[in-house]
């Protein structure tokens, strides 16, 4: 077929892609990680390596533990009283679950964007400044700059620069979600976790966020949970497929979608369940 002919240019691009992904260093490493909510064994013997400066997506059917996986990285599961863990999660060399870890510093290193846009009912400016103020990172002129920088990175500055004092709730859903991204970026994290960030958005807003994710990977390690297969295929470099608390398959997105190794993965991708 004509469409599948490989031109030399494309071949070069593929090689570059391969280098970019293979050459990336490990940023987040799960080692024999288990997590329980009470009696419920939610994450089972997870051992994966998430690379820096690429986009890794986690997909799987509802209830497979993909959100829990994401929250295990910044220990947001700690909020749930009955949560227990075993094993380790490393960010660079630091075990996130070590006794002496300061969770507040950890969560500053790891930004998080939620399924439903959740800006505070405060002004656009105050939303972005929130984390910066909490951590005492800047004030006055520096704070203004931090806010502008974050909004620019989130591709929102041009739309809100003249309405920084307005309530964030007057923004559209897609703008609110980009505001939440700006808010997360403002505390200068290294990793950005996104938990189905587009599931509440229309296709145009979704496209904007996907473009944004692509631009963010240069500075950040992006981990994206999605139930949308096309989205995982479109934006991510590596993909993990999870099923009932286990990582069934993890590899380059292209390989995983074109030649899944496991039958379960293939069944999921081809829509036999999910």
């Amino acid at each position: 077929m004509n469409g599948n002919e490989i031109t030399p240019g494309q071949a070069m691009q593929d090689v570059f892609e391969e280098f970019r992904i293979d050459g990336a260093v490990n940023k987040v490493v799960f080692r024999d990680f288990n997590l329980w909510y009470g009696e419920n064994h939610v994450l089972k013997d997870i051992s994966v390596e998430i690379k820096s400066n690429i986009i890794t997506s986690i997909m799987g059917p509802s209830g497979c533990g993909k959100s829990t996986f994401l929250r295990a990285i910044d220990r947001m599961n700690d909020i749930i009283p009955e949560c227990r863990t075993s094993g380790q999660v490393f960010i660079d060399e630091d075990n996130v679950y070590a006794e002496d870890v300061d969770v507040y510093e950890l969560r500053k290193r790891v930004g998080m964007v939620f399924q439903k846009p959740n800006p505070f009912p405060q002004s656009v400016y105050d939303n972005v400044a929130y984390g910066v103020r909490i951590h005492g990172m800047a004030n006055g002129r520096e704070l203004d700059e931090a806010v502008e920088r974050s909004l620019r990175m989130a591709a929102l500055w041009d739309e809100v620069s003249d309405r920084l004092d307005e309530s964030a709730l007057t923004l559209s859903g897609g703008q609110q979600q980009r505001l939440c991204i700006a808010r997360a970026l403002a505390v200068e994290p290294e990793i950005l976790l996104m938990d189905e960030p587009c599931s509440a958005l229309d296709p145009i807003a979704t496209a904007k966020i996907e473009t944004l994710m692509r631009s963010l990977q240069e500075k950040y390690t992006v981990v994206l949970v999605t139930h949308n297969l096309q989205q995982a295929a479109r934006v991510s470099d590596m993909t993990a497929f999870m099923y009932i608390g286990e990582v069934v398959e993890f590899g380059r997105t292209k390989d995983l979608f074109e030649n899944p190794e496991k039958e379960l993965t293939e069944n999921y991708i081809t829509g036999k369940f999910g």
Partner: peptide, 22 residues
Amino acid sequence: PTSYRQASLALGATKWQTVRRA
């Protein structure tokens, strides 16, 4: 909404900061 609390905690705020500011 719980989502405000989550947003604040995820930014590295303590419980008290979350209550007071969010």
